[in-house]
Amino acid sequence: MLFRSWQEPVERPWPDVVAVPDHVGVAHLVVTRHALVRQVLADPEAFRPDNALDAMTPIPVGALRILARHGFRLPATLANNGGPSHPEIRGIVAGALHPHRVAAQRPWLTTVVRERVGRLGAALDAGAPVDLYADLAADLPLLVLARLVDLPEAPAEVVKEFTRAALELFWAPVDLPRQRVLAEVVGRFHAVLREFAEIGGGLVAELRAAGHPPDAVIGALFFLLVAGQETTSQFLTLLLHRLTGTPEVLAGVRAGTVQVEDVVEEGLRLEPPIVTWRRVAARDTELAGTPVPAGTSLVLWLARAGRDPAVVAAPEAFLPGQRGSRRHLAFGAGAHRCVGAQLSRLEAAVVVAETAPLLADVTVLRAPWYPDNLSFRMPDALVVARR
């Protein structure tokens, strides 16, 4: 269940808090209810973020040697930093992703998406299938992020290989041969990040000027690339797939009776880019009457929290604008709430608005395939053709 939690139907009953072992026998407390997930996220004193990036499959010596050869080190980043440096690092990153700066990208982003949709539409009109993941969603968030935050010069496919390898290495059940392959990919690009952290401008220069050491700068870049763009490209693909099966929503968008922003929020609720997230108990405590000893790993089931009947009227239905739709926890809550939430929303809104006519009469030839992963869906393709 841990690695394919997004498949669980809401009709299947789950306790509010329940112990579930992972693939190596480590027990985690899975938290399923919206109110309890929010409670944990909002209490960093009792439930710390320190384990958010711990590898789900322990990394053996052979893979660690590969990482060490590339100089890989990953100190506390935005996601797992519960220390005194977090507020300042977060503030600098939040400044780079300020809502005003994000909003200013809309005209450029609309032009890019419109051009891509035009090419995809021409291919569909000619009878050819198209891959909405590869040809529209995969690299789009990376291009947007690069306009807001100086990034190392590297081909998009190299960055995508690195980010997907990192998601697999740290959050998936993987065997030793695969760990070695992933360690090579992650370590190689980490060396690029390390060099860029010493000379880069923009956000990187601001972090250096504030006195943060190179490892902290690398950590911020690492997490921005992984969480700042990979999750958004995944969400765009998940949302497009969902929309291909809801023609009434597409018709409403085209007619102006369904608001694009409501579509995005309902998508975040039902298809969150991160389906679970972790916390660790800092001290002996309890949650909904369940004892939680210090050091216990908690898996917060964000996807199920978004389908909690106590919060939303029709948990499994895709009904943009329904009561409770915007109360999802797709971006977390509390001090570690995603700093890129507005950027992700903007990208999704533009994509929905521009693709609604394109999706009106397509059929899915190849739905996304999703590998086992604790927190990320990682769709690989979404191939459609004209009906």
Rank of each mutant, 00 (worst) to 15 (best):
V339C: 12
A313N: 05
P214Q: 14
W6K: 07
L298S: 09
W301K: 04
T110P: 00
E261S: 10
V339G: 12
H328W: 04
A154V: 09
V93C: 15
V249T: 11
P49L: 06
E168L: 13
S5H: 15
A251P: 06
A128G: 05
R327F: 09
A333F: 08
I59E: 07
R147S: 10
T355S: 05
L140G: 04
D50E: 13
V258G: 04
T363L: 11
G62R: 15
L151N: 05
G324P: 01
H86S: 04
R180N: 15
A216F: 04
V249E: 01
V362N: 00
A63Q: 09
L224M: 13
T296R: 05
V174Q: 09
Q105V: 07
R194V: 07
D135L: 04
L300A: 07
P371S: 13
V31P: 09
T237A: 05
L239W: 03
A76F: 01
V312D: 00
V17Y: 04
S5D: 15
V364W: 10
H212K: 04
D308T: 00
E266S: 11
V37S: 01
G95R: 15
I89R: 14
G201K: 09
V204W: 01
G267H: 07
P214H: 12
A166W: 03
R106N: 07
L382N: 03
D16C: 02
E115N: 14
E230H: 10
A381E: 06
D43G: 13
D131S: 12
R327P: 08
R114F: 01
V102C: 02
A183L: 00
A348H: 03
S297I: 12
S85Q: 02
R254E: 14
L240H: 01
R147A: 06
H100S: 15
E161M: 13
A255V: 09
P357G: 14
G228R: 09
L169T: 12
V37H: 01
P357F: 15
F3G: 13
D54E: 14
F376P: 02
R164H: 11
N80A: 05
A122W: 06
L268M: 13
L346C: 08
L329R: 07
T363A: 14
A94E: 13
E316K: 03
E265P: 01
P247E: 03
V102N: 04
A210R: 11
V280I: 15
E11I: 07
L124F: 06
E271F: 12
A154W: 06
R386W: 02
L29V: 07
D16G: 08
L365K: 07
R326T: 03
L167P: 05
A205N: 03
V260S: 02
R242W: 01
A330P: 00
A281D: 12
Q322V: 09
P273R: 09
L300Y: 02
F222R: 09
Y133C: 08
N373L: 04
R188V: 02
V253I: 05
Q229Y: 13
